[in-house]
Simulated assay, not measured.
Amino acid sequence: MWTLQDAKNKFSTVVDAALAGIPQEVTRRGKSAVVVLSTSEYRSLLADAQRSRGSFVDHLLAFPAEDIERAQVKPRPVDF
């Protein structure tokens, strides 16, 4: 884990470690802020997330509509 100041001072080392397959965590003011990853690691994580995520249509179709009670409201009269 790197502090932000150390990561800035030794950015080449941070990048080299990330390229070697070791994600580098950087903190700011004592709190975890970012993780530096290699591009291949990032793309792999992104592809895994996209594969495991269903489509928006599947999400809508999975909505439990029959479990919801709907209010019976009559439309109000409208004069034109």
Rank of each mutant, 00 (worst) to 15 (best):
G54W: 09
T27R: 01
D79I: 11
L19H: 06
L60A: 09
R53T: 14
L4Q: 08
V36F: 07
R53L: 08
L60I: 14
D16C: 02
V34E: 09
P75F: 01
T13M: 07
G21Y: 03
P23E: 03
D79E: 05
D6H: 10
A7N: 06
L60V: 15
L45P: 12
V78M: 04
V78A: 07
H59T: 09
A49Y: 06
S12I: 03
A17W: 13
L45K: 15
F63Y: 13
A7G: 02
S32C: 07
A65R: 15
D79G: 03
I22E: 04
A20C: 02
Q72M: 08
K10R: 15
D79F: 09
L45G: 14
A20Y: 03
L19E: 11
A62H: 11
E25R: 15
R51P: 02
D6T: 12
M1N: 06
F80H: 11
A20P: 05
F80L: 07
D6G: 04
D58S: 13
D79T: 11
F11E: 02
V15S: 06
F63N: 04
V78H: 08
A7H: 03
T27E: 00
P23T: 09
G21C: 02
R28C: 13
D67C: 07
G21S: 01
G21W: 01
S38F: 08
V57P: 04
I22K: 01
L46V: 14
L45W: 12
A71E: 15
G54F: 03
K8Y: 06
F63A: 12
R76S: 07
K10L: 06
S12T: 10
F63G: 09
T3I: 03
R53G: 09
F63V: 11
G54Q: 09
V26K: 03
H59V: 14
A18C: 00
Q5W: 01
W2V: 01
E69P: 06
A49V: 06
V36Q: 06
K8Q: 10
L37V: 08
D16A: 13
R51H: 13
P77G: 01
V36M: 05
V35H: 07
G54S: 14
E66F: 11
I68V: 15
A18H: 01
K74D: 14
I22F: 00
D48A: 14
P75Q: 05
I68S: 11
Y42G: 10
I22A: 02
Q50F: 00
E25D: 12
T27G: 04
